[in-house]
């Protein structure tokens, strides 16, 4: 599977620099796990970080900096070797009815799914950034997502099925970014339902009937 829609270059650069906030960072990492091309791009942007580090002007160091570091190394070596537990990889999460979700979500918690006739959603509560706005959205075949716009950027990764948003079609593995100028209403493919992982910076504005959802989604 090769994704057709990728994070923008500046998003990949921010990811490599460590400058993306927690929610978008998680969504981009899900894309990367399925996209060798973007992994390669991140590697190149990490090399930018390496070049900047290498050309940073050297700062004055304490005279005994190396000595203290070596003392720490000796202290560690003196300790009994701690045998790390076999890293029990947390099981990849699924929807309640067993559709696999990205493995990267395993380290975070997923709220119970809430249901409306044409929409189900769950919040992803990041282990280290519980305030981040990350949700899973699940919409039946042929149905629209609530029309919405946002005050910040929105990063949406397709993890099951596909949708169109009037600009383009997005399938499994694709990531789309939208900023505050985009006011869109995604429509799920007729062939089957769609699940997306979305991170929103700032607030999400839902229009029309969908406005009723706002307090429930809690963005």
């Amino acid at each position: 599977m090769t994704p057709h829609h990728h994070p923008s270059d500046d998003t990949l650069m921010a990811y490599a620099a460590g400058a993306l906030s927690a929610g978008p960072r998680l969504v981009v990492s899900v894309h990367l796990s399925a996209c060798a091309h973007c992994r390669e791009a991140v590697r190149a942007f990490e090399a930018v970080g390496g070049a900047l580090l290498d050309s940073a002007p050297p700062a004055a160091m304490a005279d005994d900096a190396l000595e203290r570091l070596l003392a720490r190394i000796d202290a560690e070596a003196g300790l009994a070797q701690v045998v790390p537990l076999p890293s029990a990889r947390p099981r990849a999460p699924t929807t309640p009815d067993g559709i696999p979700l990205p493995a990267a979500l395993a380290r975070h918690s997923i709220s119970p799914w809430r249901k409306l006739p044409d929409l189900q959603w769950a919040r992803v509560i990041l282990a280290d950034a519980p305030d981040a706005n990350v949700i899973l959205l699940r919409i039946p075949a042929g149905k629209p997502a609530p029309r919405h716009s946002h005050t910040g950027r929105e990063f949406t990764q397709v993890v099951y099925g596909g949708f169109s948003d009037g600009r383009d079609h997005y399938g499994l593995g694709d990531l789309t970014e939208a900023d505050q100028h985009v006011d869109h209403q995604p429509l799920v493919d007729a062939e089957g339902e769609c699940i997306c992982l979305a991170a929103v910076e700032g607030r999400l504005r839902i229009h029309g009937v969908g406005r009723l959802l706002q307090p429930f989604i809690g963005l």
């Binding site: 990728h6 923008s8 270059d9 500046d10 990949l12 650069m13 921010a14 091309h37 390669e40 791009a41 190149a44 942007f45 090399a47 930018v48």
Partner: peptide, 16 residues
């Protein structure tokens, strides 16, 4: 940032 990332990626990445 967009321009810089674009310029760098043109040099660094295989064609997308």
């Amino acid at each position: 940032l967009r321009l810089a990332a674009k310029r760098l990626s043109v040099l660094l990445e295989p064609g997308r």
